[in-house]
Design a binder for these strands. Structure first.
Lengths: 301, 301
DNA sequence: GGATTTTACGCATTTCGTAAGTATT
DNA sequence: AATACTTACGAAATGCGTAAAATCC
């Protein structure tokens, strides 16, 4: 058994069990990969992959269990490398942040600017995706940190830190009838609604708020992106339910916002990363920046 | 980086950082070991070991942190091998049990006999040691399971299962004055005591019982071994405080025992093994045998 | 028949062993 | 002086690449 065989198992996993694709990824010829897999299985004394004739079709029961250990080895291997790089120069490196549009635009700017001041040598990659994809990106190590509100439940292999709590707001044109008078779920439900797509930015909390009342929301437009929602609200299509921090009285001067904290349960944005994954000091510092920015938000309110 | 380099780090750890000893253990020449370590450190870009001249004297800060990852890799590697062996034939293998004399003699016989009936192909190694040493044996993988009462606190890398609860008893010669009348800590403390050594078989609970009273026990003999205690009690040296299950009315017909459950807090015997360590099915079965034997004990009482 | 995996064999690279050199106690 | 580690170089082992055969779809 050696580390390249372990690496091979990992790469096969990510490439439909294709030996030829794995060979490409590993920059060696396919026959070499075939040979190494045989050697590994012979050494273990039992097949790791199901086969139909010569082709690999999936993992055996044993194989599935072995993949957990492969993941552990891979994690530890990367940790050793990261640890050493961090020890040599903790000011340089790469930080992959996976997050949703709302966080990227309305929460991250301040902590990211502060972070860059302290760590100008760290290259930041920010990738936007759906909450579901964010988790995948953590697992496939395409991202170091995920910052989002939905989905990051108590997955056993994720470390989840609560970051900040926020409320939804309703936004509408200035002369809209909903801008005056008492705000109730009933009145809200009587207008066409524009809000986030399923699985995005606290949408689940909007659902729960209305599920209990028996009323149905007339959601005429769902988007992952707050700006899209605001754009169509400006066009008079209806009222928008967006994250409170996404309303800016200056930029959004055509619109008015009203807080929905009494009507819709609060949402919690979290920071998630892989358990057992060593984070370089700059990444730990970035998390601190996020938490202190979150602190400021809650004080300001 | 490769697995034999990782193995080397682990072996160095266990051999006072001596390259020559490590070479012996790995069945290669010392110069090869020297070069592999250099290659590894060059690849990382930073030294893993502190040196005085040419000699290794210890780990660097980086090295200490790396050893955690080395342990993880080693664990996963062994798990893969165990997993495969278990998958091929789950009836064969080796089981290393580390425990104290009292458990080995008075608790384990029944579960071990039952286990052997079901798994005659499993070779059992039983090693007796002090509770402190048991933990070491788990860490150094000289033992798969540790069964004992003291010490196995909440160490972060140990999985600890409560097994059974028991009480101490006082044993003495048949005509001894303490065999009649009310049993109190005061009366007990007025006689010379024979009991377990520090750190053995619930000794800590005996301490706590008397610590609160302010009285001092006159312990004239401490032994790790119940049989030693009973032997000297038979010779009339004093009264023995032993584990309740270690008194057998037939074998110990010269002695009488009186329960101390009202005077000394109960003790809990636990089963411990390394976290993240894959246990073959027969080992899992052995744990089940232990737990059901424990169950029977508590029902009998 | 095109794509994929296996097998065979020569070549390149890696790793080891021997032996000599250097440092440490 | 003895022990422990490093360096140099040739030898063995390991792993890769090419090419051809076998198998799958």
């Amino acid at each position: 058994m050696n580390l390249s065989q372990i690496e091979l198992l990992r790469i096969l996993q990510e490439n439909d069990f294709s030996l030829s694709k794995a060979a490409d990824k590993m920059h060696i010829v396919q026959s070499a990969v075939s040979r190494q897999l045989q050697l590994f299985e012979v050494e273990l004394g039992s097949p790791v992959y199901e086969r139909q004739g010569k082709r690999l079709t999936g993992l055996t029961t044993l194989g599935r269990r072995i993949m957990e250990e492969v993941a552990a080895i891979n994690m530890a291997k990367i940790n050793i490398q990261t640890l050493a790089a961090d020890y040599i120069d903790s000011n340089q490196g790469v930080l992959h942040i996976a997050t949703t549009h709302t966080q990227a635009k309305y929460f991250l700017p301040k902590p990211i600017l502060r972070f860059r001041e302290k760590y100008p040598g760290v290259r930041i990659y920010m990738v936007e995706a759906s909450p579901e994809q964010l988790i995948n990106k953590l697992h496939s190590r395409q991202a170091d940190l995920a910052i989002c509100t939905e989905k990051v439940a108590e997955e056993s292999d994720l470390e989840v830190k609560p970051c900040y709590e926020w409320h939804h707001a309703v936004v509408m044109l200035k002369n809209h009838p909903l801008s005056e008078g008492e705000l109730t779920l009933e009145r809200l439900a009587s207008y066409p609604i524009l809000t986030y797509s399923f699985g995005f930015t606290g949408r689940s909390n909007i659902e729960t708020a209305f599920k209990n009342t028996g009323m149905e929301l007339d959601i005429i437009l769902s988007a992952a992106d707050t700006d899209v929602i605001k754009t169509y609200v400006r066009l008079g299509m209806g009222v928008g339910i967006i994250a409170g921090m996404a309303y800016d009285p200056v930029i959004d001067h055509e619109l008015v916002a009203r807080d929905l904290s009494q009507l819709i349960p609060s949402s919690k944005t979290k920071i998630a990363y892989l358990k057992n994954n060593y984070l370089p000091v700059y990444t730990q510092h970035f998390i601190d920046e996020l938490l202190s920015a979150a602190q400021e938000l809650s004080v300001a309110r």
